[in-house]
Design a protein around this nucleic acid. Structure first.
Lengths: 242, 242
DNA sequence: CGCGTCGTTGATCCGGGTCAACGGTTGTGG
DNA sequence: CCACAACCGTTGACCCGGATCAACGACGCG
């Protein structure tokens, strides 16, 4: 049975900006159902045109693109609260695929209603655009990382971002959070080889900066890790929840 | 004296989706002025909160981020028809800087009117979000390039994208277009060193694939270049004009 | 028990970075 | 009118971070 938006556990998390009571009602009406999937399930395919949009409610996924010669770029990670399928809703075509990495539950919306939704709910339309801007912000940072930083800096940046995101949605308990991704996923996100990613991860572990093993990510001192990454501990920007 | 939206030379270009007569009137009312700048002029600064939004009418620019250790990532190039400053309008902070690379003319809009604009013109709000999705699409492709492709492929990809974009807005005459960027700009966009970019450019030139010199980019066979880049000659996606 | 997936580690190689020097052009001031 | 500096493109020599290749162990599953 589907979660009522009113009872949505995400809304309370510090990552998200407040929603008015009427926003909540609006989303409840827009929401047409809930979807549960197992790890490995493809949710959206690059180049396709899904009839549905999603908001991740529980679980994690990866967004990735595939090149002509078979290489893979992980473009972003999906966490609870992320909106999925916007491109398909606007440009009629996804520029990347989305694949679940853990068990997931997703809120489902109808793509065909998106335009009328924009007309009837301009504040929410504004928020959707805001989400797109947040995504653009992240991609710019990722591009800068892959283009300019060393493997060690990159890895520190990625794990720090993941961890901060997890913290903002209540996934971190006792300086640790569950992480269902594989090393290959991170490697493909950073444009590094699996082997080098593994070795660099080992170095970070030896330096007591990060411990990621058995599906658990532990970070004791985020400040120190940020220093290695070469970023100020600037926060993940707050955003609306759809 | 400012160009009237009605007479806007960009609207006719094949890159842009059609605007209704009322859309044109709407933009005319939203537009508060025009700005002309010389090469090198900063238009927006990373981290700042500009009171103005722009649409590039003539000329080119670069969007870039700077890392703590002083390196620079060029995140995208700005061509006529690009909308600038959306992030600042939504998140109150730019995630990158924008700097003119040629003489430019820009249409100016007031950031403070953006929200009411969303309420009164939902179709145009939809189009703004569409633009954000196009940007996301591009950044994903750029990330894939920097993360997965070789220097030669990257360079071919970048020059091809620039050229196709130029073609779609009428900048290409006789298989050539003006390009005010420096080699350093392209290098910083692709995460390559200037030296290696220069040498790779030389190779492409020898292979008769690309000739970029004296501020002119010439490409005779885009198909062949696309093959080198490892992309299908997929088009630059059409988009709205703000 | 055998097979597929994922993490780990060592050996070797190479694409591209870094360093250095030079030439052409433009602009500026004496 | 010329000296000089600043900027950009170009080219050669050398080196290193990370890719590639290869092999093995641990685990879960049919």
């Amino acid at each position: 049975m589907a979660t009522l938006c009113e009872n949505c556990p995400l809304r309370k998390q510090p990552l998200f900006v407040g929603m008015s009571e009427s926003d909540v009602q609006t989303m409840q009406k827009f929401k047409v159902g809930e979807l549960s999937v197992d790890p490995g399930t493809p949710l959206l395919i690059e180049g396709s045109n899904s009839p549905q949009l999603f908001t991740a409610l529980r679980g994690m996924a990866i967004r990735y693109k595939t090149t002509a010669d078979g290489r893979r770029q992980v473009v972003n990670f999906v966490f609870p609260g992320d909106f999925i399928g916007l491109q398909s809703g606007l440009m009629n075509e996804m520029s990347h695929s989305v694949e679940a990495r853990s068990k997931m539950t997703l809120c489902v919306f109808n793509r065909s209603e998106l335009f009328s939704f924009f007309k009837s709910h301009p504040e929410r339309a504004f928020d959707i655009t805001w989400l797109a801007a947040v995504e653009e912000h992240f991609l710019g940072e990722a591009l800068t990382t892959v283009g300019q930083r060393t493997a060690k800096q990159s890895l520190a940046w990625a794990l720090l971002r993941i961890f901060e995101r997890g913290r903002m949605i209540g996934l971190v308990r006792n300086r640790a959070m569950d992480l269902p991704f594989r090393q290959q996923d991170i490697a493909d996100a950073l444009g590094l080889s699996l082997v080098h990613t593994n070795k660099t991860l080992g170095h970070l572990r030896e330096s007591q900066l990060v411990n990621w093993s058995d599906g658990q990510l532990t970070i004791n001192d985020t400040e120190k890790l940020a220093a290695v990454a070469g970023v100020e501990t600037d926060l993940v920007p707050r955003r609306p929840l759809m």
